[in-house]
Amino acid sequence: MSKLRGYRVMLGHTQTDMGKILGITKQAYSNKETGKNQFNDREKVKIRDMVRKIEPTITIDDLFFS
């Protein structure tokens, strides 16, 4: 999930910020970003939409499965 971390940093967000945006705790977000747990579909869409501000053609597959 280092790709996801990279995009988060490029967007200027901390793990705490992302947790608040997604409605989960910082720890829950951290566990998902590091691959210990999986993001649900709603979270994936929200993250993809955020990343599209800097990478307009990014897909969910690009972010989470490649």
Rank of each mutant, 00 (worst) to 15 (best):
Y29E: 01
G12W: 03
L4Q: 04
T34Y: 13
F39A: 00
T14L: 04
T59W: 10
V51F: 01
D17M: 00
L11R: 00
G23H: 05
D17G: 02
L4K: 06
R48T: 10
D41T: 14
A28I: 00
Y7H: 07
E43R: 04
T59Q: 00
R8A: 05
K36C: 07
Y29S: 07
I47A: 08
K36E: 09
D41W: 12
F39N: 01
R5L: 12
I60V: 14
N37E: 13
M18N: 02
T16C: 07
K44S: 06
F64W: 05
A28W: 02
T34A: 08
N31M: 12
G6H: 05
L11W: 04
G35H: 08
M1N: 11
H13A: 11
I58E: 07
N37T: 14
L63E: 04
E33P: 06
G35Q: 05
L63T: 05
T16I: 11
H13L: 14
K20C: 00
K44C: 13
L63S: 03
G35T: 04
N31C: 10
D61A: 14
T59A: 09
D17C: 03
I24E: 02
K36I: 11
I58G: 08
K44I: 03
G35I: 05
K26A: 12
R42V: 13
H13F: 15
Y7A: 00
I21N: 03
T59G: 07
P56F: 05
N31I: 00
K3Q: 12
K53L: 14
K46Y: 10
G23V: 06
R52F: 03
R42S: 10
G19T: 01
T14V: 05
K36V: 11
S2E: 15
H13Q: 14
L63D: 08
M1S: 12
D49T: 07
E55K: 15
E33V: 05
G12S: 04
T25L: 05
L22H: 04
T57P: 02
A28K: 01
T59C: 01
T34C: 12
N40F: 08
G23T: 05
R48D: 02
D62F: 07
R8W: 06
N31Q: 13
T59I: 07
S30E: 09
H13V: 12
S30R: 13
T14R: 03
K20I: 09
H13M: 15
E33C: 04
K53T: 12
M18C: 08
T59R: 04
K3V: 13
K46I: 15
F39S: 02
K53I: 11
I24G: 04
Y29H: 06
L22V: 06
T25Q: 00
S2D: 14
F39D: 01
E55C: 09
K36W: 01
V45I: 15
M50H: 07
I47Y: 09
G35D: 02
G35F: 00
K26E: 13
G19E: 00
P56A: 06
R8I: 04
Q38D: 15
P56H: 04
G6Y: 11
F64G: 03
